[in-house]
Design a protein around this nucleic acid. Structure first.
Length: 944
RNA sequence: GCUCGAGUGGUGGAAUUGGUAGACACGUUGGACUUAAAAUCCAAUGGCCAUUAUGGCCGUGCGGGUUCAAGUCCCGCCUCGAGUACCA
């Protein structure tokens, strides 16, 4: 009987599904362990061999933990709201839910073939109303909360209202909008409820605000930065302008410091932590207020606040620069400069942010005609506008110190502005001097002679004395825009009364996505939900009704935007703990049992998206005392991408001639992707099949070398459009899931990007066949083992394998453990080992990697069912130490001494030389070394 | 520009964290079995030299250094990749 993987794999996959083998039990007596994969977006293209890499790794770990006696939670679901399904709907009119459903079915089929040990009863889908009910619920909780900076936690909005009633907002230390005015209790109580709502919105953790976006009037939609090319829309080439729009935002900045600090608490890759820290971008400095000098045509003094990391250079300020969008620009510009300024603001507003960034070398700006007064010298300082200052960072205004900042320096040179030198012994005639460490301040009154640290401290206290500044920490992180003008996303549980947002009652959730005729924006430029006729809120009946009934008395309009992609993925890991609960997002029993994710595996591309937003939501949930841990993922691993090896044919320019790679030389050719399935492992193209595939080359001339057409190769991201996709189904069909699983692991380190090469799989496939034969030594390949005690060699092979494989699993070095298995099976085959004492543990040992074959062998070994519940075999150290030469773990030495010996000594001579060596003798303190290892030459290692 | 990561055979990659570099696998070559293919098994496979065997020299991107001993540690470069970018 040979290794029939097709039969075996189908049999055990059915068995697992039927018996619910991998069901995780809430509140089990066993210790819990939670292994999580980042759930996929079910795209129409299906899975390619790159997708399951992380799933295989997590599955190995989950299975290993089960063998170790843990109650393992290993769930899977779908992040099923998203753009592709919506775009498909726009093109075809097919409802996104239908497309999504079909894609999920396909994904599930592919996943099932790989033998994953998921508890499918816990599946979640973000687009399922029973799931997004809770996404909406969290949104309501955020809306009803504010951030108390003094306590460093989110609190109920009612508490804030109480404080407003009693003492106004003057003493409150909260995260809120920059423009929040101060008011007293009396003033608050005077306000009508709409005004009060407006003020509260400035404190809520999710809030409506005017946000600057890229607006394309022709398409009636907001575009992301990468949807804009050269200032016009990528699709259609329509002009794009920067526009303020009212959007929902998440006050993630309230959590900036905690998000930064708590990175220390988690075992995540350093590079990912760096990326998040970078993104949060904490910088320490000071906020300084400059007051404008009233002039003939502008008789009011306006304060301009700036943020600087170099307050010590304040005496080097020779001009101010405002972002063109700064709100004071219009107020302070003088008559004489008005036209020039207006022109400049107009031109820059038409440039997209991306254009501005791409074009950093051109220095542009205009003088406003206005001046500010220097807080210490009282000198007049001109105010300029320049687009190198970004409206979105700090206050959108900078104090320009040309001697200490290269951008300010370049601007000053370009516009011939004075460059005062404030550094002791530094030449600034060529460039600015920005080295904090070497700074000694000069020409700066009370700061003269101080270094950076001293001067910074001193100037901040002086600024505080005169009330024109204070120390400040600034973050690059911005509040996250949470509105999307899309159909296929979570509806906001929001309706509007008198223009102010109200949350619908929690009991009425989920607020289901309405049906629409068209998935495009409406004629009036409203989001797609504006097309829905059943989309108004009857406040009394608490239900959705027809739009035509809106009377603004009982029936109100509902929010037309939907939530962004990251909404649904920000809490899904907790929902898996109790996925069917319809009374709460999860029960306290469930969360207190599973607590947090022990191991999370997924791609690094989510570093500053999902992985930051979900940490923010978790912290909020922690503040609400809904979850026991402030960080939800203890350990995280980023699996590397599996890359495709694309194939290229080369067409000579202007002809229909395809030239084999070796003959190109100086010919001007353009490379074209060829489908990798049309190329054999020697890079030879199947010309007939290629003609079939690309009819436009039916009559092309093929210029061959040695009678063959040789393609070019390049490693690229695996993608349908590059025709380099390898489908896991085909691999499973030809080699089996166990081969695929082992091969994906064997390919290289988990975290590393690596190219796929189907040819190499024959190695692991041959290994599995060899493994099978080990248990089938009977005459016709029948199952046959012996009950004889095993040989020393066989025991040694087994035990070193146990040790190495367990070490590898714990360290996630799955690639080397596959090699270890191969060595083990080669050795046992050579030894003709048939002993049950060896073969039983081996079957368990390999089961996390190759679960199907392992189950099949186990059934034959024990005549009982599943190997999955068997304990992982134990490593017995004695067998290794007996012969450490073959497996020199003793190198890992308790003691290692080094002495010099002549080259030509025999073994005994060396030993006696070692034992009489003074230094060694002293260190051995009379103990006899177990082993002396001689390295050719003169070096000796002694293992004690 | 800044941050992080990586450079080892024809290829993917090992190397017990300072201890005989190239495990394991692909590929290649030769052989066995076979009418043949597939499958399987055996042998060789970093380079150069020597060959009658035992052998010798060089070798982990480059140049230095520390050490009895360096792919591994230190200093200075080069190249590639990823992320980020006028962040005041």
């Amino acid at each position: 009987m040979s290794y029939n993987f097709r039969e075996i794999e189908a049999k055990w996959q059915r068995y697992w599904a039927h018996k619910n083998t991998f069901k995780a039990i809430n509140g089990s007596e066993k210790e819990k362990y939670y292994v999580l994969d980042m759930f996929p977006y079910p795209s129409g293209a299906g899975l390619h061999v790159g997708h399951p890499l992380g799933y295989i790794a997590s599955d190995i770990y989950a299975r290993y933990k089960r063998h170790k006696g843990f109650n393992v939670l290993h769930p899977m679901g779908y992040d099923s709201f998203g753009l592709p399904a919506e775009q498909y709907a726009i093109q075809t009119g097919q409802h996104p839910s239908i497309t999504t459903e079909a894609n999920i079915a396909r994904y599930r089929e592919q996943l099932d073939k790989l033998g994953f040990s998921y508890d499918w009863q816990r599946e979640v889908r973000t687009s399922d109303p029973n799931y997004y009910k809770w996404t909406q619920w969290v949104f309501i909780q955020l809306f009803n909360s504010w951030y108390n900076k003094s306590k460093d936690k989110a609190e109920k909005i009612e508490q804030l209202i109480e404080i407003f009633k009693k003492e106004g907002n003057t003493n409150i230390n909260a995260s809120c909008d920059e423009d929040t005015p101060l008011f007293t209790a009396a003033e608050w109580n005077e306000l009508n409820s709409k005004k009060q709502e407006e003020l509260l919105l400035k404190y809520r953790l999710t809030y409506l605000a005017d946000t600057e976006v890229n607006w394309c009037p022709a398409l009636g939609t907001v575009l992301a930065n990468d949807e804009i090319v050269n200032g016009v829309s990528e699709r259609g080439g329509h002009p794009v302008e920067r526009k303020k729009m009212t959007q929902w935002s998440m006050r993630i900045t309230a959590y900036a410091q905690r998000l930064l600090d708590d990175l220390q608490k988690v075992d995540w890759p350093q590079s990912l932590k760096d990326a998040q820290a970078n993104w949060i971008g904490r910088s320490v400095g000071a906020s300084v207020t400059f007051n404008t000098i009233p002039s003939d045509n502008n008789n009011i003094s306006h304060p301009i606040e700036v943020f600087t990391t170099r307050p010590d250079t304040i005496f080097g300020v020779s001009f101010m620069t405002l972002a063109p969008e700064h709100e004071l620009v219009l107020k302070i510009t003088t008559k004489e400069q008005r036209e020039e300024v207006d022109n400049y603001v107009q031109i820059t507003s038409k440039r997209s942010e991306r254009d501005r960034l791409a074009d950093v070398k051109t220095i542009t700006g205009v003088f406003t005609g206005a001046f500010v007064e220097h807080p210490f010298t009282k000198e007049s300082i001109p105010i300029w506008i320049g687009d190198y200052v970004l409206a979105g960072y700090g206050t959108g205004a900078v104090m320009s110190v040309p001697s200490g900042d290269q951008r300010d320096y370049d601007f000053a040179k370009h516009f011939n502005i004075h460059i005062p030198n404030i550094f002791e012994g530094i030449d600034i005639s060529e460039e600015a001097f920005a080295d904090k460490e070497l700074t000694i301040i000069a020409n700066s009154e009370f700061l003269n002679g101080l270094n950076y640290k001293q001067a910074t401290k001193k100037v901040i206290s002086e600024l505080e004395n005169i009330g024109q500044g204070r120390g400040k920490v600034n973050y690059r992180l911005r509040d996250a825009v949470f509105s999307r003008q899309r159909y296929w996303g979570e509806p906001f549980p929001v309706y509007y009364v008198d223009g102010m947002p109200k949350m619908i009652d929690e009991d009425c959730l989920p607020l289901k996505l309405p049906e629409v005729e068209k998935y495009l924006p409406t004629d009036t430029g409203e989001p797609p939900l504006g097309n829905a006729t059943e989309w108004a809120w009857d406040m009394q009946k608490s239900k959705v009704v027809n739009n035509s009934l809106i009377d603004h008395v009982k029936i109100f309009p509902l929010e037309l935007n939907t939530m962004p992609g990251w909404a649904g993925s920000s809490q899904y890991f907790n929902r898996y703990m109790d996925p069917e609960n319809d009374k709460a997002i999860f029960s306290q029993d469930a969360i207190n049992y599973w607590k947090e994710v022990d191991l999370y595996i997924g791609g690094v591309e989510h570093a500053t998206g999902h992985l930051l937003y979900s940490r923010f939501w978790q912290k909020f949930m922690f503040d609400k005392e809904l979850v026991p841990h402030e960080e939800y993922a203890k350990k995280l691993i980023n699996q590397g991408m599996i890359l495709g090896t694309s194939a290229f044919v080369y067409r000579e320019e202007g002809t229909n001639k395809l030239i084999s790679k070796g003959l190109i030389n100086d010919i001007n050719v353009s490379p074209l992707h060829a489908d990798v399935s049309l190329v054999n492992s020697s890079d030879e193209l199947d010309i007939e099949a290629f003609k079939e595939w690309r009819p436009e080359f039916k009559d092309a001339e093929f210029v061959l070398e040695n009678g063959k057409y040789i393609v070019g190769r390049e490693v690229e991201k695996m993608s349908k459009s590059k025709y380099n996709v390898v489908n896991p189904d085909e691999i499973c069909e030809e080699y089996g899931a166990d081969s695929l699983r082992m091969y994906e692991m064997f390919l290289g380190p988990l975290e590393q990007a690596k190219p796929w090469n189907t040819a190499g799989i024959s190695g692991v496939y041959a290994f599995l066949k060899k493994l099978w034969r080990l248990y089938h030594s009977g005459p016709d390949g029948d199952f046959q083992i012996t009950e004889k005690p095993p040989s020393k060699e066989a025991l040694k092979s087994l035990h070193k394998t146990i040790k190495k494989v367990e070490e590898d699993i714990v360290n996630f070095s799955f690639n080397t453990s596959v090699a270890t298995f191969m060595i083990c099976v080669n050795e046992l085959s050579a030894q003709k080992c048939t002993s049950r004492d060896i073969l039983e543990p081996l079957a368990i040992l390999i089961s996390p990697y190759a679960p199907h074959i392992s189950e099949e062998l186990w059934e034959k070994l024990r005549h009982i069912e599943s190997v999955s519940t068997e304990p992982f075999p134990k490593f017995e150290a004695d067998h290794l130490i007996e012969n450490s030469k073959a497996y020199p773990i003793s190198f890992n030495g308790k003691m290692r001494f080094t002495i010099e010996l002549p080259l030509d000594m025999g073994k005994e001579e060396i030993e006696s030389a070692v034992m009489s060596h003074e230094k060694t003798k002293a260190q051995l303190q009379g103990r006899i070394p177990k082993k002396v290892i001689v390295v050719p030459g003169k070096i000796v290692n002694i293992v004690g």
